[in-house]
């Protein structure tokens, strides 16, 4: 109980990932969906750092760095697209984005 092992961190990572999945499932506002995506990425980063520490291998930290870089560029492009959509349509709700449905 007092000794913190790899499984503690994996459990924490799973809980955070599940919270992110719940957010993805119940949100309709696209900005809130982006927040849920950030939670998913951070949960995985914790698992990477924990495995990197407990196996004495730096590859996990490297992957965490690349995940952070991808998250940063995702936010830049995604927010730009959201701003363009909001300027044209006045809302960023998912149910209004069905123009490609046949």
């Amino acid at each position: 109980m007092m000794e913190i092992g790899l499984n503690h961190y994996l459990v924490l990572s799973t809980i955070l990932f599940s919270i992110g999945l719940v957010g993805v499932m119940r949100r309709k506002n696209l900005l809130m969906l982006f927040f849920a995506t950030e939670i998913l990425l951070n949960a995985v980063n914790i698992a990477f750092a924990a495995i990197s520490h407990f196996y004495g291998d730096l590859t996990g930290q490297m992957f965490a760095f690349f995940v952070i870089a991808i998250a940063a560029s995702e936010v830049a492009v995604g927010l730009g697209l959201l701003i363009v959509w909001h300027k044209r349509h006045g809302n960023i709700d998912l149910e209004h984005m069905s123009t490609m449905r046949g």
């Binding site: 309709k28 900005l31 982006f34 951070n42 952070i68 998250a71 959201l82 701003i83 909001h86 809302n91």
Partner: peptide, 26 residues
Amino acid sequence: VYSGAVMALYAFGMMFFDTTRDIKEK
């Protein structure tokens, strides 16, 4: 990166959106 850049980007991006109204749930 996250607290400094990503969150600041979200905060500035939210100025473009109507964030005062309540968010409807799916």
